[in-house]
Design a protein around this nucleic acid. Sequence first.
DNA 1: TTGTAGGCGTTATCAC
DNA 2: GTGATAACGCCTACAA
Lengths: 354, 354
Amino acid sequence: VRRVSIKDIAKAANVSHSTVSRALGDSPLVSNGTKERIQRLAREMGYSPDAQARSLVMGRTQTVGVVVTTITDPFIAEIVQAIENTAQEYGYSVILASSNAEPEREIAAVEMLQSQRVDAVLVTSSRVGALYRDHLERLGVPIVLINSHHMQAGPYTFSVEFDNRHGAYLATQHLLGLGHRRIAYVAGATDHSDDEERAAGYRRALREARLTLDPQLVVPGTGGADGGERALPVLLALSDPPTAACCYNDMTAIGLILAARRAGVSVPADLAVVGFDDIPLARYVSPTLTTVAQPMLKMGQFAMGMVLDLVSGDGSEQRVVSDIVVQGRLVIRESSGAIPIPAKLNESILEVST
Amino acid sequence: VRRVSIKDIAKAANVSHSTVSRALGDSPLVSNGTKERIQRLAREMGYSPDAQARSLVMGRTQTVGVVVTTITDPFIAEIVQAIENTAQEYGYSVILASSNAEPEREIAAVEMLQSQRVDAVLVTSSRVGALYRDHLERLGVPIVLINSHHMQAGPYTFSVEFDNRHGAYLATQHLLGLGHRRIAYVAGATDHSDDEERAAGYRRALREARLTLDPQLVVPGTGGADGGERALPVLLALSDPPTAACCYNDMTAIGLILAARRAGVSVPADLAVVGFDDIPLARYVSPTLTTVAQPMLKMGQFAMGMVLDLVSGDGSEQRVVSDIVVQGRLVIRESSGAIPIPAKLNESILEVST
DNA sequence: TTGTAGGCGTTATCAC
DNA sequence: GTGATAACGCCTACAA
């Protein structure tokens, strides 16, 4: 059962295949009569255009590549979902490639996407190594980095990033507003730039409140629940222990809360806790977790939007696309001890020119 | 900066483009000298083969389509991850299409995949409508349905399914083994075949234990946490309330546990609870949740493995591929009141011929 | 308004 | 061993 091509339709309609091509493309150069006849015929014969053949002559595939570390990360999944939705809306297909954070697989993925001649590449949450960056740039197609810290923008590289600093600032400010003066910061993995940015937001909030930074209140973590669990005894052992803790992320906060419960420390009465990320779990732990939510949906939409801007037109003109920084939103739940009023703050977008 | 093709390499190497094609394909028909020379040249010139052009002549794209309702579902994400990993391993690319469970988008997705000329399609967790099935079959490529209840296998359609019945049987048996005699079943959404199968497993376990089925012990739910929350008062109001509950899924179980805590009912002392699915949350609620884990990784691997079997060869011979049914594994945690010994039971595979 | 011819980047089938 | 040449399915000048 061979596939039906425009030539088959041409034969059946007694016209040339170019006429069929035009009719299916709804060209004005073909009479309405034959146009309808051909379109009906195409439908009846079960014609499906061959995207491969089309891109070969058109020079664009209407396809984008999405590189993720793992689609298993709920964060990334949400972003990819948004990307796919917008892509579909504009007639683009999405090729998914996961790297498992292994450099060699990341490179293999890029090469695969290159062979597939994708019109653009979107990369999420990659700690882009210099070497990898070179491979990306060599692609010769626009690249949009999402929450992937790129040191310097290349000619093809653009970015959508989350404002970690401001997010942590909001979280800390929230605790300050509740009257806390001894506020700890439980960090994530060391030398992770996300963590550094969040720590900076924490410090800024304290500075603004004219509090001196007590280095003892900043304890290391891991990014996982164990980090929070190990942090609790360290904090309790302090001569002047904190009454609140701002955590690198939700899992750290959850670890801290679990450890507190076991130690008989009441959250939020004895220790108020805020997390970061708003993972699904956050609304199911007890107490439910106050945290900073990232607008994954928007980030995906913006990223794909940038791609669409970049690939539209014939590519000759210089494109004017700005990097984007999105702001988070504080989600107040039980763990911080505030009256849980669904807050909807600062869900604005800050644009930064390239 | 035009792309470099084999013709460009041919010019640079003073050979014909066919020789280049052969050299790059590592054909034995070309002398080692020129072969190496050409391959080096290709690398230096930054050549990347054009998958479009190749598939056009080869008749296969080395590409599969994956249709999901939403990649946001951690379950589906895990399966897709496994699919992508195996696909990558065998040199296949995956095109992702999400339907949001909307029929029209599901059809649009299938048409897109058809235009992309994917070699096969994998569908996860779709409640495949008859209409949709027709569209799928019309594709003319093998289709593997994962946890998508397909009434009857078509010539191109194969399946990988989870044994819901056996899973619920295991869960219920576990509660029986702990001495419970009044065991409730909190259902999911009505007319969902997963739920029906799980309920059947529950009934079977009770029957085998020579217990009469009390219809009052089977209460409706929603599939979400609210279903479990609403179930609790219904169960407590019974003249002879249950001492244990087997839930349609983890979210239902978690809802039940949350409601129990608020009502002062101790879990597992007053009410033992088991869930189904082993979502990430299950190990973080308190008490941690005893549940039935589905081997998502395996399901993805099997599914992609079937695809590889189906597309290998020249397609002329009849393929012998069996539908697959995978078994779950009971994960014993705190909520059922058993001593939490990591159990590794029944992780076997049952094959059913097509 | 329609048809003819060429080409997109490959691989495959012939000759030489 | 290597080189012409013809596909694959589509689009698009150019010609009629």
